[in-house]
Amino acid sequence: MNNFIYGNTTKVYFGKGGVKEYLCCLLKNVGDTVMLAYGGGSIKKNGIYDEVTAILQKAGKTVVDFPGIMPNPTYAKVQEGAKRVHENHVDFILAVGGGSVIDCCKIVSAQAKSAEDIWEMETVKRDFPTDFIPMGAIVTAAGTGSEMNNGAVITNEAQKIKCGLMGAQAQFVFLDPSYTMSVPFKQVISGAFDTLSHGMETYFGKPYDNNLSDDINEAVMRSVIRNIRILLRDHENYDARSELMWASSMAENGILKIGKITDFQCHQIEHQLGAYTDCNHGQGLAVIHPVLYRHIYKNGVERFVRFAENVWGIKEKKTAEKTALAGVEALATFIEEIGLPTSFMQMGIPTDTNFRAVADSTNITAGCCKKLTHDEIYEILQECI
């Protein structure tokens, strides 16, 4: 295994009722003014907003609302949030929602403490912030794993770039599976597939020799597959939702990445697709993954064989290549089984989308078993239509 340094500063409160039991106590350690950040307003319909607001008021906090964070948070929204922090002298940010809300708040937290433009600072100067407005998170939609790391995916609409930035990391996070019950079921499955994608994107990264990180990853991927299938039969199964919620965190809290150079080529392609189309992230990954893997599996046969055998339970075929391909096809079949789209057309992405521009602007990753060209990425996108 490669050398590594590991640490995680986020304290997790997992399970039903955690917010009511612990949040008020945690708020004693933060400043007087709390910015409550959320998305389109679903937390007002399902009662979570009233619950959290009451706790904040009981703790004597001045509450500043920051609503309307979109599914693919924009850099303009980040700037709006940072301005609100300054205008209201916010001491603490509480993100309530899924990965998009948490991601936006991470960069708001950084921008609010810096006089520089964070986008230019990170993407051009390659300089990263070290000072942040402290924040916490209450997760209401699982999948991204954003709650236990400092990475954030932000779309710069002016530049048509969707990419990762580094921001604050939540001091504490609440993972209550019951909060996911009101999320539209298609989004639950889309989020769960995002978790599976995170597992695969790490698993197919280098090195390929046997290591503990990959052993754990195989267990996480099998758990995600198993519990998605349980939810398809029983949408409100609390145990399955709890397993998926923790799997989401496990896939992105750094444990599976210990000693690894990750792949994430599929994510890079989907991010740029999202920059041009504002498409659903999990659905985009579902369409791209099998097509991408059919292009590259011969360059990482041994790893794809292990994936086929240890994740999908496929018995050895006549050749290693056939076993490897069987694992890719098992993934493709699973995507159909769980009702996710298998083409851009099914996602409603227009056929006249500038896929050439999407391909040419896609970041090429170091961890992929085959270093793709922009022309090959364009071919993959064409096959996904």
Rank of each mutant, 00 (worst) to 15 (best):
I385Y: 15
V19K: 08
D131G: 00
C104P: 00
V305C: 14
K16W: 08
Q79Y: 06
V153E: 06
V19N: 07
F304C: 01
K322A: 15
L36N: 02
I335K: 06
T123E: 11
C24Q: 15
K322F: 13
T140E: 01
Y22A: 07
G164S: 11
I261S: 14
V63Y: 14
D234Y: 02
Q346W: 11
R294W: 12
D103K: 06
E51K: 14
S343G: 09
Q57N: 14
G284E: 05
K20I: 14
G18I: 01
I296E: 00
G81C: 13
T365H: 02
E376N: 11
D103E: 11
V34F: 06
I335M: 08
E201I: 04
C368W: 05
L175W: 00
Y6D: 10
T10A: 14
I69R: 02
G199I: 03
S249K: 02
I377R: 06
H295W: 07
G31Y: 01
K206V: 13
Y179C: 10
M245P: 02
N150D: 03
A170M: 06
L212N: 14
G17F: 02
Y13C: 10
Y6G: 02
G7H: 13
I69Q: 03
G145C: 03
H295L: 03
A115H: 12
C384H: 07
R241N: 07
K44D: 12
R356G: 06
H374Q: 13
P177K: 05
P341A: 07
K162R: 13
E270V: 10
S114M: 04
V101I: 11
T362M: 08
L36W: 04
F193W: 07
N299D: 13
N150V: 00
L256W: 04
T351W: 01
I349E: 02
K317S: 02
M70L: 12
N310T: 11
R126L: 09
T351N: 05
Q111S: 01
E316R: 15
S361N: 11
V220M: 15
M200T: 12
D214S: 15
F185A: 09
G31N: 09
K298T: 01
W312R: 07
C279E: 10
Y49Q: 09
M148L: 15
H267T: 09
E270N: 08
T33Y: 06
L212Y: 14
E51S: 11
P134G: 01
S361R: 02
T351I: 01
I230M: 08
A170D: 08
L165M: 15
Q57D: 15
R229V: 10
S109C: 11
T333I: 09
G300L: 05
I55C: 13
F307H: 05
A275L: 06
V108G: 04
Q265P: 05
Y297A: 10
D263Y: 08
N29A: 09
D65H: 05
G31A: 05
Y75H: 04
T342W: 00
Y49T: 07
C369W: 02
D278G: 09
V34N: 07
N8F: 07
G300R: 01
K322Y: 15
Y378S: 01
G348I: 05
Y238G: 11
F204S: 03
T130I: 11
K162M: 08
G7L: 11
F132I: 02
N156Y: 05
H289K: 13
N363G: 04
V311K: 08
K113S: 05
L372V: 12
D375P: 07
